[in-house]
């Protein structure tokens, strides 16, 4: 995102209205299109939970994201649902919101929060909804070195309804490093009964140009904790090799031609055109001498 902001102008454009958008996307006046709401919740380890949903529309040619649609988030209670917030989807169809972990939303069985995302639909789109339940939890990532071997340590904690914290035990955690398009899994570790696990940090992971990188510990789609994520930075990565500013060995495809080519061309052109000029000079001399002759006679 940084590169985008720094490198490109921001443009704004305006259209006559949404009608144009609809007109272009076809099936006008047809029955409402089916929508799909993919909803997930993440324990972000900073005492909050992220609710995130992606809204897509099914059309003949496939599915596409629905932008600017209102998604409502509810906490599902035993008696009635509590409206948490309303969020509009962005152009990628994503509506996301963060809520604090410790709050008064009702909890269901096994201390689980139950969240629901609802899209009410519109004239051209059917309504859809989806639920997700999880127990608040958090992870903590830290690094240490022992006998010049580097380790990653992850501590897991779960937050009970009574406000106490107990270890998040006997669970698998993935260690990931965010890369340009996706996260690279570098290791897997197991949290023991004390909620602690550690593993060796691989030596061949590439960081940024200084070797900095972010390590993400992640529990994914766990029956109880849903998604739990935490991250920490270190500088254990290999330094990213940046493209050398040196010229490539073959310059044929570069904007400027190789020197030998330019020199050869200049020599050849100078040689040939020099002779042309000589011949033309002779012609001028002929003309001149003709004039001189005329004067004589």
């Amino acid at each position: 995102m940084k590169t985008i902001k720094s490198g490109i102008l921001l443009f704004v454009t305006l259209f006559l209205g949404n009608g144009l958008v609809f007109a272009q996307s076809g099936d006008e006046g047809a029955e409402p299109a089916r929508t799909i709401l993919r909803f997930t919740c993440i324990n972000t380890s900073d005492d909050s939970i992220q609710l995130k949903s992606t809204l897509t529309v099914r059309r003949d040619e496939g599915s596409m994201n629905l932008a600017n649609a209102l998604v409502q988030y509810f906490a599902v209670g035993s008696e009635e649902d509590v409206l948490i917030s309303e969020v509009k989807t962005n152009y990628q169809g994503i509506a996301s919101i963060k809520i604090p972990t410790l709050n008064s939303f009702p909890r269901g069985e096994m201390d689980l929060f139950n969240f629901k995302a609802v899209y009410e639909g519109a004239e051209k789109y059917e309504s859809s909804e989806s639920e997700f339940s999880l127990k608040p939890a958090k992870l903590k990532v830290s690094f240490y070195e022992e006998d010049s071997v580097r380790y990653v340590k992850v501590e897991g904690t779960q937050l009970n309804i009574d406000g106490t914290e107990t270890p998040l035990a006997e669970t698998d955690v993935n260690l990931l490093v965010p890369k340009m398009f996706s996260m690279l899994k570098i290791a897997e570790l197991y949290l023991d009964e004390t909620g602690i696990g550690s593993t060796e940090f691989p030596a061949d992971i590439i960081g940024d140009s200084l070797g900095n990188l972010t390590v993400v510990a992640s529990i994914e789609e766990n029956d109880i904790y849903g998604n739990v994520r935490a991250s920490a930075d270190n500088n254990w990565g290999l330094q990213k090799h940046l493209i050398s500013p040196d010229r490539p060995s073959r310059e044929l495809w570069t904007p400027i031609a190789p020197l030998w080519m330019i020199i050869t061309l200049i020599i050849m052109l100078a040689g040939v055109w020099g002779h042309y000029v000589y011949a033309v000079v002779q012609l001028f001399r002929i003309k001149k001498s003709a004039k001189a002759n005329e004067h004589k006679s």
Partner: peptide, 24 residues
């Protein structure tokens, strides 16, 4: 015709130019 009249001088100039250009 550039006022060419075929004087000896002109013939020499023309021949020089033509020889050069034939090679070129």
């Amino acid at each position: 015709a550039l006022g060419y009249t075929g004087t000896a001088e002109q013939q020499i100039m023309l021949k020089r130019a033509t020889d050069i250009m034939a090679g070129m």
